[in-house]
Amino acid sequence: MATRHPSDKIMTARGIVNRFGRQQVHDGVDLDIERGEILGIAGGSGSGKSVLLKTLAGLHRPNRGEVLINGKPIVAISPAEKASLIGVLFQQGALFSSLSVAQNIMLPMREHTQLPAEEQERIAAMKLALAGLPADSGIKPPSALSGGMVKRAAFARALALDPELLFLDEPTSDLDPISASGIDALIVQLNESLGVTVVIVTHNLTTLFTVCSRIAVLVDHKVTVGTADKLMKSENPKIREFFHGPRAEGAMHARKTGHGI
């Protein structure tokens, strides 16, 4: 897939301004997403991480600024094309509760392709295996799955049309440590094997330090981008606070010893 576009920036955001009423969320956010990287978006609660993710995924129109995907404005591409470019893993999974897990994965294929049903089922079974789920979980309703399995099923659905860019909203929140590190490992594995670009919104420091190649921190309505090591040395007091708490030290230790994945 890397051959398709020579440019190495899959997505660029320029001068994003978001405000709700009087509350300023983003004030001129610039962000480049490199093809094939795993970018973490971090920030405290209420710093506008999720709004930024929605803006980048084209679900929210910013008050000012624009988002380009493969050099084209995201507002100008057709819904079908967008579906094959972008996949989103929502925080609660957002699996359709009236459909089985396999039907959830087949839904975008049913809508956007003319594949026969048995072919769709074969592909759905493959996506389940990619996300690390057994085939018999496919016929279950989403409500019958555990928290970690819901995330994996949502992963499988986000990958349904082999998107180039995958947005993950808090992929490891509400999960026990074992499931969370399983998801971390899955993110790295999919990034390596499929070459998919991944953007993770999270405040899980272990995920940020062990999975992401670069981190964008939202501080004072703007982003600061850098590698974990660079951000650790930052002079900005708020970034320092974020990366030097007791929890950050533990996560940094996990990064150094290679745990967490």
Binding site: A2, M126, A129, L130, I139, S193, L194
Partner: peptide, 21 residues
Amino acid sequence: AEHRALLDLMGSLKLRPLPNP
């Protein structure tokens, strides 16, 4: 090479058909 990687990935998966409800 990049296609070979995807084919190897398919080979590494434990592929089973969806069970019939």
